[in-house]
């Protein structure tokens, strides 16, 4: 047995600080929460309000724009149609809204952090272990405080999704920037390019395929969180899966599960095709 006198517990201080956060800074979190919620509801109302065929046309259009391949675009359209036929259209749109929101915030958070990580050694030293924690810490551990701070519902679901899914975007933005040909950066520096100009006009465009691969991974990981997200009140496909499990309705669970897979495949193909299109030049 490990000697008991040496044991320490961080349980009490952690609990205490969370309580303080909730009591004293609750209004800040409420404000953030409201902002995210309003934006999410706006996205959701657009997706759910638009006619189904319009959504499918947009998906097919995006797929064709990115890939210039008719076969792929038709497949994407067919898959989205299949989701509708499974009777999961509304849930899929809810899940899609959650995904878009989480992805949008992931880009806003992940890309700048990735750039800083690539540029500064100190930042790298801090970021990399934090990312490891974010990816390995069981999501339920941070769901509980998130619930206390933001209440039950869509917002903590979005935040939990971001915590889990933003690391690949940060990692690949960092990698993409660091992988830009050293001599190219040297050349634009030698001709007097400013750091901002070099970042936005040289490094970012050249890192874009890698960043897109990161975005693709972020979306995939976000989708794998939908069931967990529905446990804290997000609606959509995850909720249907959860429902199926709770009522031992295997068929219903499988249908919704298929819906998640289809959404994953469709988003994967679309984001990948954009990554390749940019990389081809």
């Amino acid at each position: 047995m490990f000697p008991e006198g040496l044991s320490i517990s961080i349980r009490r201080p952690v609990n205490h600080s969370i309580e303080v956060l909730v009591a004293d800074y609750g209004h800040i979190f409420r404000a953030i929460s409201d902002f995210i919620l309003q934006l999410l509801l706006a996205i959701e109302s657009v997706l759910r309000g638009a006619p189904w065929w319009a959504i499918i046309i947009v998906f097919v259009g995006l797929a064709y724009w990115g890939s210039r391949r008719v076969g792929l675009s038709v497949t994407v359209g067919g898959l989205m149609f299949a989701v509708g036929m499974l009777g999961l259209w509304d849930q899929t749109m809810q899940t899609l809204a959650l995904m878009l929101m989480a992805t949008l915030l992931s880009i806003l958070i992940g890309v700048p952090i990735g750039i800083l990580t690539a540029k500064s050694k100190g930042m790298r030293l801090v970021t990399l272990p934090v990312l490891d924690v974010m990816q390995t810490m069981p999501s339920f551990v941070y769901l509980i405080p998130a619930l206390m701070l933001f209440g039950l519902g869509k917002v903590p679901a979005v935040l939990a999704t971001i915590i889990y899914s933003v690391p690949p975007l940060i990692r690949l933005t960092d990698l993409g920037i660091r992988q830009v040909n050293h001599e190219v950066v040297e050349a634009v520096t030698a001709f007097g390019g400013s750091p901002t100009r070099i970042l936005f006009k040289t490094e970012m465009p050249l890192a874009l395929p890698t960043i897109m691969a990161g975005l693709n991974q972020t979306i995939m990981m976000a989708l794998s969180m939908v069931v967990v997200a529905s446990m804290i009140g997000a609606r959509g496909l995850g909720e249907t899966v959860l429902n199926g499990i709770q009522t031992l309705d295997v068929g219903k669970g499988l249908e919704a599960g298929l819906g998640i897979v289809i959404l994953a495949v469709v988003l994967d193909r679309i984001t990948q095709s954009f990554g390749k299109a940019q990389g081809g030049e």
Partner: peptide, 17 residues
């Protein structure tokens, strides 16, 4: 660097995009 000196590199250092 802008006005006084320019440089040519061994592996060209051209911007591929």
């Amino acid at each position: 660097r802008m006005h006084k000196v320019s440089m040519v590199f061994q592996s060209f250092g051209l911007e591929p995009h």
